[in-house]
Write a protein that binds this DNA or RNA. Structure first.
Lengths: 227, 227
DNA sequence: CAGATACGCGACAGACCCGTATCGAATCCT
DNA sequence: AGGATTCGATACGGGTCTGTCGCGTATCTG
């Protein structure tokens, strides 16, 4: 869906590229029966540098508009040619680069649903990778009308899997009786994610306090009603 | 804080410019004792058109980067000169233009705190002006690191006053006993605003359903705990 | 009326970016 | 060795945007 140049991808495209990265520069994921093409193989090092530079820029610049191919090339220490040989344009590059943020999220199994939710929420606002993910989220959602495909794919491949983790925890809570039997899972999801995402972005009122995750979960657990 | 040109502002700057807009093109808010400057007065019509075009573009383009002076001028049917005569650069223009979104929000006084919250939440996601405000919010927050002054001022002058309305309702609920005596007002605020803002931006899952505001408030009121 | 200023329009230099092309050097296979 | 391909670097034409300037016209004051 991204490469339009002559060569076949030779790139991640579904697999987990960051798994090994071991010895040889290539020869790992080669198709059995497909001969290696002649000539110098593409640099995996360049692949990684480009994707990382793209994600970093997206997170820092606060918008797709701030990511220019030239800036990516400079930051990755790579020629523009090397980028255009792999992706036809900026949007395709960003779409592929976002796959770098996919790495899923193991559902914690702690003493209680409350503890699990707190653990997830805590990671959401304090973990470094999660923070980068969140910055990219804001960058993409801000320009969502401009790049709907980008938003759709990011939502499907990065956001939803993480929401699924919370869904799982919530359903487990319903099953165990820790949560209401008639729980509105989706609305609860919006409440949790919304509060965390919004608060994490509001620099004006200072950094996210340590106990914020706890307060969110507990307020939500208990409810605000007086009875 | 914005105009650097020779002339004094002659612009809103604190007042409510959209109130009258009645007959004469000027002569309304003139200082008693200060003589009117010679020459053709600045067009109020251009003022309004520029500000409106700026806000619209900010909401539509999904980012500060998408607002160019040239686009604003074209959309407002105005020469670039007319803009540069009033504001020194894009950021100053946007800062002033956002004042157009200030109009506060009367705290509803309905039968119950729950009804008030639902009313506010409903307006938040369905009212047209509120939707534009929300789009601007996303645009600005996305590029918050790039334009911290812009975000700070927008937060202070547009967002916080509206949060204050909800704070008031929540405190009223605590006083009347409808809400818990030990309510964590700020966290509750993040939960409500976060859920609404996030959901309103997630086009991928369809438009905001009519009952979303109700579900958010009720889930929050009741809590999710099983006991 | 004359003087002062604002108006919309278009031109301009400088900056940035896109996407392509070309270069010599490097890397891989046969 | 020789052919194929990629590498980073650089240059290019074409586009958009910025902020300034000059033009002829419109509007207001005295």
């Amino acid at each position: 869906m991204s490469q339009t140049r002559e060569r076949p991808p030779a790139q991640a495209a579904g697999g987990s590229p960051g798994a090994g990265g071991s010895q040889s520069s290539t020869g790992a994921g080669r198709q059995p029966g497909a001969a290696r093409p002649p000539g110098r193989p593409r640099s995996e090092r360049a692949d990684k540098a480009i994707v990382e530079a793209t994600v970093d820029l997206l997170a820092e610049e606060g918008g797709v508009a701030g990511v220019s191919i030239e800036a990516v090339a400079a930051r990755a220490g790579v020629g523009k040619t090397t980028i255009y040989r792999r992706w036809p344009n900026k949007e395709a590059l960003i779409i592929d680069a976002l796959a770098a943020l996919k790495e899923p999220f193991p559902a914690p199994v702690g003493a209680s649903v409350r503890d699990d939710l707190v653990a997830i929420a805590q990671a959401f606002v304090s973990n470094k990778t999660d923070r980068k993910r969140l910055d990219c989220y804001w960058s993409i959602m801000g320009g969502a009308e401009r790049y709907p495909d980008l938003m759709a794919r990011f939502t499907r491949e990065v956001i939803e899997p993480r929401r699924d983790v919370i869904r799982l925890v919530l359903r487990r809570g319903v099953a165990s009786g820790e949560l209401r039997a008639d729980l509105d899972v989706e609305t609860t999801l919006w409440l949790i994610m919304g509060a965390l995402a919004q608060r994490a972005r509001a620099f004006g009122v200072g950094p996210v306090p340590d106990d914020f995750a706890t307060r969110v979960v507990d307020t939500l657990m208990t409810g605000i009603s007086g009875h």
